[in-house]
Design a protein around this nucleic acid. Structure first.
Lengths: 218, 218
DNA sequence: ATTAATTTTTAAGTATGCTTAAATATTTTA
DNA sequence: TAAAATATTTAAGCATACTTAAAAATTAAT
């Protein structure tokens, strides 16, 4: 399947994780850097291929076939991240960028060899779970978005769901990284802001951050 | 640059190695599995991009820029082959197939990391030289095609320049592999056949083989 | 040196994956 | 709830990388 199609179903899959009501063409278009019109077009094409259900003005929903394709790409992406992270001294952002390309040119055979080599890891270096060869995520996901965390509680950062260099740089500078401990000192509900303390810092994060930083209760 | 373009310049580069007079659209078309018309079209486009010189009915000639692009892709291909060969238990044919895809989605940075990891190897598992990051092949190539080998002499197999599974299977079954020793027992000049002895076997090979098996004199 | 065979080129057309602009529907907000 | 803002869809068009069929040139064969 083409790279454009793989990226499209992957974008839907990823968007659904935190925003299932809003997986609409415009949303996907923004993520992929294409026009809304192109996304609508593509949605229709993929519906014809039974990869998703499309109804005018409604949210896009992956079919079982579409979900399988997305999970296959996601698996390869996360395996590459884990592999490159282990093998080479590269930044998480660089690793992400390479994986973003390699994921589409990786046979199931090679993916399996990589998984073998790594001892079939369950998580990638961002803390994201790696689907198995059948597209199943067997690890139960107990993590929640930071936006849904409870004031006063202490958490462990479990996932940084982003592909943005600025975001990673910001995180690196503020000790926001996989497996670090944070305390949610305040949820500003109406402003959709969250105040956390991490290491000896206090940081107020807006929704752009709190929707993609995932945490596990300690 | 697009995959189609990278593959096109690579095909010219590879063809030039053994058949410089015949690097014409039809030849490249056959290698790439596209129509002659498509190859002519592409040749014109690449000429406009200063990647090759094109004159009607004449052989295609890569410019310096085109050669650099070809060597960059060839480098990535051969590095992937060396890397996958070292890391995973996969057949040479499978490794080639993976490298054929990965080569186009590999940043210069990642290529360098792979080269570092391998200790900057000069040759891939087929015996083909790996260009350096500047697109230079520093190892002098003293090998010759088996078709040009001298009757009675003993050689070491230095390169198997193919990407065909049948060819590799045949080679594997007949001990024809990188670094093995062979003796050229007879050159049937008019039939363009070569008789070799390898291990305890005697094999007569036609031009399809003797043009792509390279050897070094012992 | 012609003729025949092959190759290359041209021409017309297709599918994919985008674009912008305008029309239409939905969602927000006041 | 009606107007304003926003999002989605439609329509027309474009570039890339191909196709087949026919014309033109080259190469090979007798």
């Amino acid at each position: 399947m083409s790279i454009a199609i793989e990226n499209f179903v992957k974008a839907i899959y990823n968007n659904d994780k935190h925003d299932i009501k809003n997986t609409k063409p415009g949303n996907i278009a923004k993520k992929l850097g294409i026009s809304n019109a192109a996304a609508t077009d593509m949605a229709k094409k993929l519906a014809a291929k039974d990869l998703l259900n499309y109804e005018k003005y409604q949210a896009l929903q992956l079919t079982e076939k579409g979900t399988k394709m997305a999970l296959n790409v996601v698996r390869k992406h996360r395996l590459w991240e884990a592999f490159l992270f282990k093998m080479f001294d590269m930044s998480l952002h660089d690793i992400h960028r390479e994986a973003e390309l390699l994921e589409h040119q990786t046979s199931d055979l090679l993916a399996e060899k990589i998984s073998d080599y790594l001892g079939h890891p369950k998580f990638d270096p961002h803390g994201d779970p790696i689907p198995n060869a059948d597209g199943e995520i067997t690890t139960e996901d107990t993590s929640i978005a930071l936006s849904d965390a409870i004031e006063g509680n202490t958490y462990t950062i479990s996932r940084l769901m982003s592909d943005d260099k600025e975001f990673f740089d910001f995180c690196a500078q503020n000790q926001i990284k996989y497996r670090n401990t944070i305390t949610v000192s305040k949820q500003f509900v109406s402003n959709k802001m969250t105040q956390i303390s991490i290491a000896s810092n206090t940081i107020v994060l807006n929704e752009d951050f709190t929707k993609i930083i995932y945490v596990d209760e300690n």
